[in-house]
Design a protein around this nucleic acid. Structure first.
Length: 110
DNA sequence: GTTATGACTATGG
DNA sequence: GCCATAGCCATAA
């Protein structure tokens, strides 16, 4: 069941999570899916990815990475430069240091 | 209704 | 570290 309203709300909550990520920190698709899914009762990492691919341009998409810290595909170069500016902890391999940079998203607060 | 696809994740080799 | 596989859920054809 996915009404237009629910899709819109899902998108907005996902974007809100991405927007709430502090400077120099990152979160993951799975974490956002978990938070939003708990509130809306459904969802999944792939849905978050779809949302970011569709509406991610409006938010700090580079602060949303994969669970292992790998940079988002298709824009990894841009993201890495943003990390350098923000001081996001990186690992030698080029991916994000999740142990230090991971930020747990919350809705309605931070 | 069925298949393919995607800015995913966990697990195993 | 990398690659393959399976599970995942919504969208598009």
């Amino acid at each position: 069941m996915t009404t237009a309203e629910e899709r819109e709300l899902y998108v907005e909550l996902v974007l809100q999570c991405a927007e709430l990520v502090p400077r120099g920190r990152v979160t993951t698709y799975g974490a956002i899916a978990d938070v939003v899914g708990e509130r809306l009762g459904r969802g999944g990492p792939r849905l978050v990815g779809t949302v970011m691919a569709t509406h991610g341009a409006a938010v700090a998409w580079w602060r949303v990475v994969r669970a292992d810290g790998s940079l988002p595909p298709s824009h990894d170069a841009e993201a890495r430069q943003a990390y350098l500016e923000e001081g996001t902890p990186l690992r030698p391999g080029g991916s994000v240091d999740m142990a230090r940079a991971f930020w747990q998203p919350r809705l309605g607060a931070q």
